[in-house]
Design a protein around this nucleic acid. Sequence first.
DNA 1: CAAATTTCTTTACGCGCGTAAATTTTTGTC
DNA 2: GACAAAAATTTACGCGCGTAAAGAAATTTG
Lengths: 343, 343
Amino acid sequence: MSGQKIRNMEEFAAASGISRPTVSKYFNDPDSVRDSTRVRIEAALDQYDYRPNIYAVNQNRRLTKNIGIVVPFLSDPFFAEIARKLETLVIAAGFRPVVLGSHGGTEQENDNLETLRSLKPAGVLLAPLGRASDKSAVETFCRHVPTVLFDSNIEDIGEAFIGSDNISFVDQTVEYLCRTGEPPSFFEMRTPANPNANKRRLAYLAAMERAGHAPDVISVEGEGWGFEEIGRRGTHDAFDAGSLTSRSILCSNDRLAIGLLAACYERGLKVGRAKGSDLRVASHDDHPFSRFTCPSLTTAAHDYDAVAEQAVKTLFELIEGGRPLSDRKELLYPARLVLRDSA
Amino acid sequence: MSGQKIRNMEEFAAASGISRPTVSKYFNDPDSVRDSTRVRIEAALDQYDYRPNIYAVNQNRRLTKNIGIVVPFLSDPFFAEIARKLETLVIAAGFRPVVLGSHGGTEQENDNLETLRSLKPAGVLLAPLGRASDKSAVETFCRHVPTVLFDSNIEDIGEAFIGSDNISFVDQTVEYLCRTGEPPSFFEMRTPANPNANKRRLAYLAAMERAGHAPDVISVEGEGWGFEEIGRRGTHDAFDAGSLTSRSILCSNDRLAIGLLAACYERGLKVGRAKGSDLRVASHDDHPFSRFTCPSLTTAAHDYDAVAEQAVKTLFELIEGGRPLSDRKELLYPARLVLRDSA
DNA sequence: CAAATTTCTTTACGCGCGTAAATTTTTGTC
DNA sequence: GACAAAAATTTACGCGCGTAAAGAAATTTG
């Protein structure tokens, strides 16, 4: 970390006693040069603290080592967490993650895709907004950049989809609730932002039918990504309208459940599986905060790690293969039931 | 959006009938060319959908239009939110935000700073980790890049600090709690990650002395950024040890309070300002989730907008001024008390 | 130890754009 | 309509690096 300042690869090459093209080769793949050469370069490296200019490196390359990671909402700890996992995996693979959040807005999602295109990424991991996505914009993007979708699927767009198996989520929660008490009503947004919500409702209906119970879907109004408030407001409205009579409620996702729990608390209702409770509440996602709700939330957890690892792995296969996968892959991981106090 | 593909500015200039240097000038500042010229360029622009190559644009420039935004923990909705606000303001100013989260790790924070340096940003908005920050690394960085610190101060580092006035936070909550009931005990982490926590404890001690009450600080163990769990665990431990006897608790921050509320719930304690409650709980930050705790959390809110706006404004003054501000500015914004149900 | 192979060096060009200098064209003023 | 000022054009070079080609040097093989 000492010595005079190195301004470019030319000077660094001179300082290390290696030719510039060889140094360039080293930076593109350290293993591509002879051991003795690598040692000399690395010795010079921590003597002079030089790093290739990132812009010069990329401008004359068709593809960079950038990997885009786009999530619909970075303020949602759920997505922040999975973005972090992806980031870590991408770095480990020697690439450079660029994390972008769409803030729940179609325009921002499109902006993010445009930004990424100008970054010439080698590939992109995209969790689309879902219903609010500009399908044609996303499709156009995917035609130009190898893209793996995750979390939320858009049919036939992207080279692959890696996500969680909503049926597995709902089957487990419904089975558990039915086995241990009253069959659940299903609590959801009428116009969910995300296609997973629809799959979960259908899975609920199917599971209830299989079990021989009458389904009961409570759909609450609300737009946008403020799920907690939508759940809270919707719960009050449903109680007021008399449409929420069940003593067993399965929420479409944890954030709605957090709002529902808040509303129940406000109404003085006791939630839990313990005797003397007014109702049981379960949900899906295992949101980072669901451990800290009152009561703690029984939910079905994503296999975060598997989804992240598989998404990254699939993307790199795509990139290295050069060509798109022959057929669009869709990989779904099952849920893991997490029993806590709410049900 | 039609027409043949444009490969570079040369071709685009030809297509629009303007010379390349003038087009270049346009992209650097649309107002720097004659109106009639701008119109022609913009006409061509949406006919051919051309964007200058971002790498070529930046490599031969001492400074880019990039603005780095670094927060200690992107999975914390609090930071995600403020990052979003900053992002929006930076875009509005015609710059290009690059948001990076440090995931609570010193190494990651240093990595982020290194990444930013290679991006040659015009300036950086940095919320440092605090105690865990590598001060000398941050200082070195700040010597090379115009940097405005926010949220968490490090003495004499960066060209300015914009934050919230911890004294105002604590004074308001303490005053409120004293006025409406028992004087509060103060609940905090023994080794907080963030310097604000120390300031809040001192402010609590001062406020209690002024009011003529005996202070009572409950410091719980725990390292890292899992504040909710630290708060929950610490609450149980404190109750078990008999060190938590107060009926009025002021938490250092909302995330600790969320954990404390969870623990109280688990112990069957009723929290709130209503008659019949076992204890009151208030806190600081107005975390996005504090609206949805059970009961909803009385807290002191940051003036998010003012902090974000001032931080961005200060940074741009710095950038445009060319030279560092004569004296390091420290600007603090007062809190706003948010009364909810917990106290 | 000579031949075959791998690795490195030298040389040279190009990427897409910023930018400076000199020149020409356009615009505004009287 | 002549003239000055403003703006656009032409020309030319450079940024820092990737990369190809050809030859020299080092390494491995038999």
